[in-house]
């Protein structure tokens, strides 16, 4: 039996030429190591980004966001029209100067308030927020007024509501011409 074990040269590395040679090797080793880790991190990051992106489809099958609601004369002055609440989630309010479209989504937690004609306010059943016919919040937890949607006249004289554009009071957007239809 031989005492000595066979040690393959490759497993020990090269003992000669220490000094600058081995530090070079070490340096290049670290270089490759960091490049490797960077590549791995980037690939993992990209993978998870794609995973998250996967949750957002390119096409949405939701009802049309822009629709005609009839002629301006059909809306009574001083009344809140609730006919389009169910289908399109908007209220149409007509006053002396014109009309505007209010979102039916409560700004607190997205419930649908009800229009109480006698008290002349929108009252949210979930947490009791109250809004005036203008959409201004005045009671309950709602932090801001209801949103308004773009509203304008089509060529045939009908009113078009475009829910793609909304106007927030607190950003001073109710003053924009699209948010209000002068009649």
């Amino acid at each position: 039996m031989s005492e000595e074990k066979f040690i393959p040269e490759a497993s020990v590395g090269t003992p000669q030429g220490k000094g600058s040679g081995s530090t070079m090797e070490r340096r290049s080793f670290f270089k490759w190591l960091s490049i490797g880790w960077l590549a791995f991190t980037a690939a993992t990051g990209a993978f998870f980004t794609v995973l998250i992106r996967f949750l957002f489809p390119n096409v949405l099958f939701e009802p049309p966001q822009s629709f005609k609601i009839g002629y301006p004369e059909e809306f009574e002055i001083g009344k809140v029209d609730i006919r389009f609440k169910k289908k399109y989630n908007v209220w149409i309010v007509r006053n002396e100067e014109g009309m505007y479209a209010l979102s039916t989504v409560c700004t607190h937690l997205g419930c649908t308030p009800n229009w109480l004609d006698t008290e002349r306010k929108f009252k949210c059943p979930c947490h009791g927020s109250g809004f005036r016919a203008t959409g201004m919040n005045f009671e309950g937890p709602a932090p801001r007024p209801l949103e308004r949607f773009a509203i304008h006249l089509a060529d045939d004289g009908q009113v078009i509501v475009d829910k793609n554009k909304n106007f927030k009071f607190e950003k001073g957007e109710w003053g924009r011409s699209e948010s209000f239809l002068k009649v």
Binding site: K86, K87, N114
Partner: peptide, 10 residues
């Protein structure tokens, strides 16, 4: 389910 009618209370 009826998305237009929120029950009161919800």
């Amino acid at each position: 389910a009826n998305p237009a009618a929120t029950p009161n209370p919800s």
